[in-house]
Design a protein around this nucleic acid. Structure first.
Lengths: 158, 158
DNA sequence: GATGAAATCCGAGTCAC
DNA sequence: GTGACTCGGATTTCATC
């Protein structure tokens, strides 16, 4: 298998990827019509995109407020020490926290930036006091309550 | 229609939402089996969840590196002025920028936090110099290059 | 080596109950 | 909410380029 960081998709593959990124439940028949190939070809192409890992999954987007997760909070985290063990311990613990939707190791004023969804501010304060600051190696956190979600999870621009 | 911020789903609805959040392309037949109802019931339930907006869409997740978007950058933005017009102008411009995946108005050291995907650092520097700092009302930006994506777009915890 | 047409099989969507 | 029925799509096969 070649280096996965830059595949050469042809125009048809790109159209399939774009269509499924917008409408993940398109039937193969509709998809085939949209990209102007036969259903058989479309099916083979799509299957290949899944098998080779270019599509990592298909997910329904559930309205957060509908399931009691109306509050979004971004948190910057600084660790005590910058050792590989320290990072690994923190990351391992964060992966277990379901409330943490995103976790990225960054360069800059923080070590990590987290995106967290909870019911409300009270819920976040509890999470912060009981779990966030208790994560391994955490020296300090900086909280950014989201007051308005302007854009969320936009489609990849390709 | 009742207040949308807290619906009362029964156990079956919740199971459907959870299943589709993980596997958006599940067939109705498989979904029905998984939640232990007949296909007909499952179909009606699922259709209702879509129609009432509790599922806002289904999207295939495309591997960013596969489509030449290997770099992830978080950017904090501070505006010149804190007027409604200033916010509106900024938000309108950001919505037009395809590279911006997330944009949230936050409370704290920044006015907005952006999540941006580009090909590489060179691409980001170009974007930063030509478009980001030229957005309406931007006083300053703070860039956080993502060095490692620990967790990305995790499922909602409900 | 990939394509499209045809053929089979199974699920989607709708009905009566 | 269930069970059954019909239609259309998913998936495979195969001939073709």
């Amino acid at each position: 298998m070649k280096d996965s960081s830059e595949e050469d998709f042809d125009r048809i593959d790109l159209k399939i990827l774009r269509a499924l990124q917008s409408e993940g439940r398109l039937t193969n028949a509709d998809l085939a019509e949209r990209v102007n190939v036969s259903p058989a070809t479309c099916h083979r192409r799509t299957q290949r995109l899944f098998e080779e890992g270019h599509i990592t999954g298909v997910r329904a987007e559930v309205a957060p407020a509908a399931v009691g997760l109306g509050a979004l909070v971004m948190v910057g985290v600084v660790l005590d020490r910058s050792t590989p063990e320290s990072f690994a311990a923190f990351e391992g613990a964060v992966l277990e926290m379901k409330e943490v939707l995103d976790c990225n190791l960054v360069a800059g004023d923080f070590d990590y930036l987290l995106k967290i969804r909870v019911r409300d501010m009270a819920d976040f304060n509890k999470l912060h006091g009981q779990k966030l600051i208790a994560l391994p190696g955490v020296r300090q956190t900086r909280t950014f309550f989201v007051m308005k979600e302007v854009k969320e999870n936009a489609r990849l621009p390709f």
